[in-house]
Design a protein around this nucleic acid. Structure first.
Lengths: 218, 218
DNA sequence: CTTGTTATGTACCGTATGGTTAGTTGTACC
DNA sequence: GGTACAACTAACCATACGGTACATAACAAG
């Protein structure tokens, strides 16, 4: 039986080596894109050599895919565990919006990887079995909230869960992914801490006001 | 005096050569990113050779910058010429939102270049004299509309022109820039023609409902 | 202690790629 | 029709880069 490899006692530790490679690869890919990332550079930043990188992941593309998969799994777990049944529909969508807002802000590398993957027409994402069928949680939660809101006569009925998810993502993603060109042109850093609460309230307001607009009127 | 180089009569035509290089470079850079783009590939797609590319633009980076500058100039001209003085504030913001929506949809390459530039932390954009001070038109127009809306007691006063511009851009940019990962995960193509009008109305509603929310109430 | 296997390090390779050197030809002007 | 310059071509170069061949050392099991 294998004694669990813990701490720093071992000289050989595949788990740790793998994780270390993934960590450095994540930051290199997020920083320079797929083509711009350098395999030698990733290897140099770990305690191992380039050889190990190919030993575990086969190719640059294989490593990139592994990085992408690990990054995507995180956010879905969060969404799945969000508990909103006890909130009224308006507060519930706001909670979803703020969860997205907080997660994206806390994981800029994830956002960058998504941007990079889009430049490549999501060709890696599309062919990864791990990443197919990730849609579940986020959409289901929103679907439930919208249904409740419509039944109560609070929400408009011409927007579905995917539309709302898209609205929220658009706002939260843009704030990170377009931060640099926005700052360069308009001179405002969208991530400045002083403005954080303002924008956090803004996503919530945005989606709630949109959903409750004119319901009951004309 | 130079007889204006027109038509196809000439064997040598610097203007045409330059433009042709820029066209092909735009699509190559937009398609593969800066590092992924191949200088040889760009040259092969033009009627000239790689040497000309260096003759006119000096380096791969110089060419990329020229591409970026040309792409950015277009949209600002549009915004500057938008006439909204005769519209009431709500209709005016909606017009701005729809102009952005239409432009982005018509120029996917521009959106892709912006995404790529953001991956590079906007380092090229920041150092380009041509691209500094491009903020003007879009913000001024929105600023005027918001002022009118607030004076008339129609609009809330806790969002400025940049905030609104950001909201609109976020929505319109996301629809294009994140099209592929969104489709891969959720199975919905945000650019499907059937949904076009739905989304176009959605940006307008979004920003108008947000701005007019609760004004005059509680 | 031996042995098979997994993990790891060193040194190297072929080629794709950005960039250049050197020379050639069309065009305007006199 | 000669001349000077801008526009253009072809062949070449150095090296950065993804990837590999080969050797070896740590570990678990008997």
């Amino acid at each position: 039986m294998a004694t669990a490899p813990e701490g720093t006692g071992r000289q050989r530790d595949p788990e740790r080596t793998r994780a270390e490679i993934l960590d450095e690869a994540t930051s290199e890919f997020a920083d320079r894109g797929f083509a711009g990332a350098r395999v030698d550079e990733i290897a140099a930043r770990t305690r191992t050599t380039k050889r190990m990188l190919y030993y575990y992941f086969g190719s640059k593309q294989g490593l990139y895919l592994a990085v992408l998969e690990r990054a995507y799994v995180g956010i879905r777990a969060l969404e799945r565990d969000l508990e909103v049944a006890h909130l009224n529909p308006a507060k519930a969508v706001r909670a979803v919006a703020e969860l997205t807002f907080d997660h994206h802000e806390a994981h800029p590398d994830f956002i960058r990887l998504v941007a990079i993957e889009n430049i490549h027409h999501a060709e890696h994402l599309r062919t990864s079995p791990v990443l197919s069928g990730l849609a579940g949680p986020a959409v289901d939660v929103l679907d439930g909230i919208l249904a409740r809101g419509r039944e109560a006569g609070l929400f408009r009925d011409d927007a579905d869960a995917l539309d709302v998810h898209m609205m929220i993502s658009a706002f939260c993603v843009f704030r990170l992914s377009n931060r640099h060109t926005f700052a360069a042109i308009f001179g405002r850093d969208l991530l400045e801490p002083v403005r954080r609460e303002h924008y956090r309230r803004m996503v919530g307001d945005l989606v709630v006001e949109y959903l409750t607009a004119h319901v009951g009127h004309s």
